[in-house]
Design a protein around this nucleic acid. Structure first.
Lengths: 166, 166
DNA sequence: ACTCCAGTTGCAAATCTTTGCAACTGGCTG
DNA sequence: CAGCCAGTTGCAAAGATTTGCAACTGGAGT
């Protein structure tokens, strides 16, 4: 009841309650060394409180993410995974679309972006856990002078229709 | 059959087929002025081809996103929305967690990040359509010297458990 | 320790997305 | 123009995530 005062304090500040279920979800995520899916969190929570419902786990996962206590990782073709956000160990991810390699990005690399958003739009971005897609060093096409997406245009006539959004 | 050669060419390059369904999905997204949910795309596609299945729409939406032809927008509490990626009009989004305001971010603001990733990790990020969360100018807390997330730590004992990941 | 109110929970059902599979078809080849 | 093969589709069902609601409960106030 002392070393995690930070968390309790943060939760109190949001006008929320620290229920056993919520504490358990947070605890499970913080004790896992990798990224857990909602279902995995659910399974682990149930080993300690079998009556906890999956929807409660989901609700708390969403809640804790909004509080910045956990980050989420969305990978193509698999369910969303959650990871603890620890002070001093914050990081983001870059996932290679070709080989699936995952690179951890230091928060410092995002600082310029954060500053640009404040400067240009007055927007204080909350970079809790970002996942970027692209190609890792090993998978980049040879003559990638046009690395990026080729720019599509003139797609309007593709299907020969003219159903306007309205 | 000429002005959209770019798209056809891009699709051919990926070793894929340009089916009527696929063209229709792309067409619908490109003709919409806002962001459409998968279901809205489905409805519009069906006005022209009633037999097209929702799963086909989803599959094409995922496919076109991977091709960089459309971008997706994930907002809290509502289904994913899709938007056309047009050359010369690329942009990303910053969504305010407090008021829901949505700001369009110029690609230029992300250039430094893109460069840092290549320089530091050899990673060529594909910034097709990014959505960032945070607080807009109007919703930022007054004395936000600690704007960002407070750093949680020592959460381990929160639930009094010691279920180690493994 | 008791009361009260708002935040939470469990349950069931709805929604949103993805997937398996056999039939179908675009588009190259002959 | 017929044949072929791999990419696609429609259908049905599974899987993932969210929501409505009445009952429950933290924790501040008394």
């Amino acid at each position: 009841m002392s070393c995690h005062q930070h968390v309790i304090d943060q939760l109190r500040g949001a006008g929320v309650r620290l229920t056993p279920q919520r504490a358990l979800v947070l605890d499970v995520v913080y004790h896992s060394h990798g990224h857990l899916t909602a279902d995995q969190v659910y399974e682990r929570v149930r080993t300690q409180s079998p009556q906890v419902d999956l929807s409660t786990v989901y609700r708390n996962l969403v809640f804790l993410r909004q509080q910045g206590l956990i980050g989420e990782l969305r990978l193509e073709g698999e369910p969303t995974r959650f990871e603890a956000v620890r002070s001093g160990a914050e990081h983001h991810h870059a996932v290679c679309s070709a080989c699936g390699a995952m690179i951890e990005i230091a928060p410092a690399d995002l600082a310029p972006l954060s500053e640009a958003l404040v400067r240009n739009y007055g927007f204080a971005v909350s970079l809790v856990h970002l996942t970027l897609n692209g190609h890792c060093a090993a998978c980049q096409p040879a003559g990638a002078s046009d690395k990026g997406q080729s720019s599509p245009h003139g797609v309007e006539a593709l299907a020969g229709s003219d159903a306007e959004a309205g």
